[in-house]
């Protein structure tokens, strides 16, 4: 008996969800697509670059606070004539001071190591550029979970691009467990 009701409930819910989707008018589609495309035009940031910026921000901020990576929202919003980069980060837990310092020390050590390597090389400038580019990949430990899901993320994002609903995409990256 209970099953019949839940089935019915789901069917009714499904019906309304469907009609909701159909109700998105041509005008709304146009507005949403336009807003998305204008964000790209105005900032010269492709979805890939936005994704990268998002990852780098997560990596940077994770050193200081433990946050809900899934719920982090990043996107451009228009405030009158001004474009604003909006970043919303739900904080899960404050890190211990010692913990932060340990992470930072680790980072510093890595940087110093990288510098030593580049100094020893003859082509100095080229190498510093390279190390800068590589650095996000080197410090994988911190953003590991986000990275492992990266292929899934891009698929997910592409699907959302089509819908053109959101400037920033939510990812399926696992949340940090305490």
């Amino acid at each position: 008996m209970k099953d019949i009701f839940t089935d019915l409930y789901n069917k009714v819910l499904g019906f309304f969800r469907q009609t909701e989707k159909q109700e998105e008018s041509a005008k709304e589609v146009a507005c949403n697509r336009l807003k998305f495309v204008l964000m790209q035009d105005r900032t010269n940031l492709t979805p890939e670059l936005m994704d990268r910026m998002r990852k780098e921000l997560i990596e940077l901020l994770s050193r200081y606070v433990e946050m809900d990576k899934e719920a982090l929202e990043l996107g451009f919003e228009q405030e009158g004539n001004q474009m604003a980069l909006m970043l919303s980060i739900p904080v899960l837990r404050a890190r211990e001071e010692a913990e932060i310092e340990a992470t930072l020390a680790e980072e510093d050590a890595k940087k110093a190591e990288a510098e030593n390597v580049s100094e020893s090389d003859t082509e100095e400038t080229e190498n510093t550029e390279e190390t800068q580019e590589e650095s996000p990949e080197e410090s994988v430990e911190i953003v590991e979970e986000a990275d492992t899901n990266s292929s899934e993320d891009t698929d997910d994002e592409a699907a959302q691009d089509e819908e053109g609903k959101k400037l920033s995409s939510k990812k399926k990256a696992k949340t940090v467990k305490d």
Partner: peptide, 9 residues
């Protein structure tokens, strides 16, 4: 009929 963006949009 919501088929076109409005002036406000």
């Amino acid at each position: 009929s919501n088929d076109m963006m409005s002036v406000e949009d």
